[in-house]
Design a protein around this nucleic acid. Structure first.
Lengths: 137, 137
DNA sequence: TTAATCTGTAATGTTTAGTATTACAGTGCG
DNA sequence: CGCACTGTAATACTAAACATTACAGATTAA
């Protein structure tokens, strides 16, 4: 699974736990263990889709923009990883009935698989993820 | 999606369409558009799990070993790609409640997603894939 | 019994995708 | 103004995917 996806979930969860103050990309990147620039790229995407707000300058940072139960893992998947299940087939032999048709068949099957997985992921909102994180096992 | 997986499906479909004679790794690799050695590696795995038979030497090659409807895409997924959905989280910060718990939470969610996808993939057998390939759209 | 054709697999090289790093412009606060 | 942030492009680095080479073992046919 695409790690932009997990970083997006991580970031949103982090912000969900800091509802009262802005968090910087540095703080989130330290929590996630990756480079701040990468986090900012992911956050930039989340902002573009309205999940978070940001403010530049001193005292700036990021803030969750919606209710925790309004954002689910399928929403996030769609903006970070849609199509990730689809196989990247090499150019196969058009002379062969298998080579000529396999890509089309697999694409349609994996598209279905993604839709199916979406139904599962839709059941997890950030609210639930936060609760799971809080449980600490 | 892991391309060993799609190569395995491609190979099995190819063999399914050549039930009466052995196919060489060269022929399959030409159909799939990849290097023969790579195909042999995938075929070696399929053989280890009993899906196909092989014979060395002149006139040798590979042959489907089971009934087409006995092998489904979940079976193949399991041997080529199990765990592929699980995120490869970087080592996150144990001092942070999010960093310390996110990996565990995501692993359990994605494990569930994989099981869920398995139910979908189980419905496609090689028999059905062959039919889809034959349709040619 | 030797040459040709195949599988099986290890070792190595190459390409590509993922990720980190650097750099710097723009914004807002004190 | 100077500092602390976001935003983003460009570059460098690293790891994973993939191709290639090489060669041993099996089987058949000449």
């Amino acid at each position: 699974m695409n790690s932009d996806y997990t970083l997006a979930i991580h970031s949103l969860t982090y912000l969900a736990l800091q509802p009262d103050r802005m968090s910087t990309s540095d703080a989130i990147s330290e929590s996630a263990g990756v480079h701040p620039v990468r986090i900012r790229k992911v956050l930039s995407l989340l902002k573009k889709h309205g999940f978070i707000k940001s403010k530049e300058g001193t005292g700036g940072g990021f803030l969750f923009a919606l209710d925790l139960s309004e954002v689910n893992l399928w929403d996030i998947y769609k903006i970070t990883s849609e199509g990730a299940l689809k196989p990247k087939c090499p150019e196969s032999n058009e002379q062969c009935i298998v080579g000529a048709n396999m890509q089309r068949v697999l694409c349609s099957i994996f598209l279905g698989a993604e839709v199916h997985m979406g139904e599962y992921l839709r059941d997890y909102t950030i609210k639930e993820v936060v609760e799971l994180v809080r449980e600490r096992l």
